[in-house]
Amino acid sequence: MKRSLLPLNGLRVFDAAARHLSFTKAADELHVTPAAVGQQIRTLEEVLGVVLFRRLTRNLELTPEAEAALPALRDGFAEIETAVDRMQSGQGDKVMTIGAPRAVIGKWLSARLAALGADAPEQRFILVPTDDGTDFATANMDLAVRWGALPAEEELSGARVAEEQVIVVAAPAAAANVAAPADLLTLSLIHHPGESWQAWFDGHGLVHKDVDGGLSVVDEGLALDAAASGYGIARVPLTLARDDINARRVVQLFDGIPSDDHFWLVAPPERWRQAKVKAVVTALTA
C-alpha cells in the first residue's frame, strides 16, 4: 500500500486493541468509546482486506496474520515517535537557534549566552554564522542579530541592542603614545568593510598620506584582534569592543561617534511571540 494511503489512525487503534485484546480497554487508553474502536477496526479490516481479530464470547483473539504483522507495526510507530521527538527537540522551549555575523558571535553574543546558560543549564543554544546572508527559513532560526538601520522587512520584528557608537581602539602600549587625533597619523591603520578612515580623518581636519594603507580584514572582530595584538588602530562598534576594553586588551581613544546604524535582534512575528525568544531578547537588551 502506498505511504499516502496508509490508514495510520486505524493502525494506531489496532495496536491498542491488540495490546489489551479488548475494545473497551483500548477505548479507555485512547479516550474514545468502545463503539468507536470497533468501527475503526472494522474499517481497517475492510481497507486491508484481512480479518484482524476473532471475536470470542468474552475477549478477542488475534488472527495469525495480525499477530505476525504486529512487531513490524510497533517498530514503525517507534520510529515515527523518534522522528517527531527529533523535530520537536530542534524547536523546543529549551533550544534556541540564533543567527549572527561571526564577529558578533565571537565578540559579543557567545559571552552573553554563556551567562544565560549558567543561570539556566537546561537551555541549549545553536549559533548559525550569517555573514553570507542566511535567512530564517533556510537555517530555521528563532532569532538573528543584524547590523544597520531598523529592519524594513514587514515580515520581521526587531529590538535594538543598544545605542551605538563607533570608537577608535588600540593596544594599551600603542594607546600610551596617543594624546590627540593627530598622533594617529603615525600609526598603522586597520580596515574592515563598512568603516572609512578617510571620513574620520576628514572629520578631524587631518590628512593621512597613506589612508588606504595598513591591514585589511574581513570584519570588526578580526579588526579588534589585530588592534589588540599591537598591529595598529581600528574603528569598531562599541558594542563589540566593550568586553575587550573591560579586559584591557584594547583601549578606547577619544570619544566615540554616535552611529546611525545599530545591532538589532530580529525575528519573524510568529517567533517573536514565543516565550523563549522574548526571554532571550530581554536578557540581551538589558
Rank of each mutant, 00 (worst) to 15 (best):
I105D: 00
V161I: 15
A182S: 14
Q88H: 10
H262P: 00
A26I: 04
N246V: 07
H20S: 14
P7R: 00
A68M: 14
E81G: 12
A226M: 11
P64G: 05
V95K: 08
F254M: 08
V217F: 05
A149Q: 12
M96Q: 11
L44N: 11
L284E: 00
N59Y: 06
P151K: 05
G117D: 02
A171W: 01
E45G: 03
V104C: 13
D212I: 00
R74L: 13
T282F: 00
Q274P: 04
R273H: 11
W108C: 05
T43D: 12
G49C: 12
G49M: 10
G158N: 08
N9H: 12
L5D: 15
S188Q: 13
A223M: 07
I126S: 04
D15W: 02
E153F: 00
R3L: 15
L265E: 12
H208K: 03
L253Y: 05
H31E: 11
V280N: 00
G133C: 10
H208A: 06
P237D: 07
W272T: 08
E79I: 12
T285I: 08
I245T: 06
W197P: 01
A226V: 02
G148V: 07
R58E: 13
A179S: 13
K107E: 15
W264V: 07
W108Q: 04
V50A: 13
A286T: 08
A228W: 01
A144L: 04
P269N: 08
A149W: 05
A174E: 11
A17S: 13
F136G: 09
A199R: 14
T57N: 08
A111D: 10
A247D: 15
R55H: 15
K276G: 03
A223N: 09
V168Y: 00
D183C: 07
V281W: 00
V266E: 11
P71Q: 00
Y231F: 13
V281M: 04
F125K: 01
S188V: 11
R102F: 01
I233Q: 02
A179Q: 14
G49F: 11
S188L: 07
K25A: 14
G76W: 06
F136K: 08
N140W: 08
M87A: 13
L109R: 01
A283W: 05
E61P: 04
D261T: 07
M1A: 10
G205H: 01
A78K: 10
G133V: 11
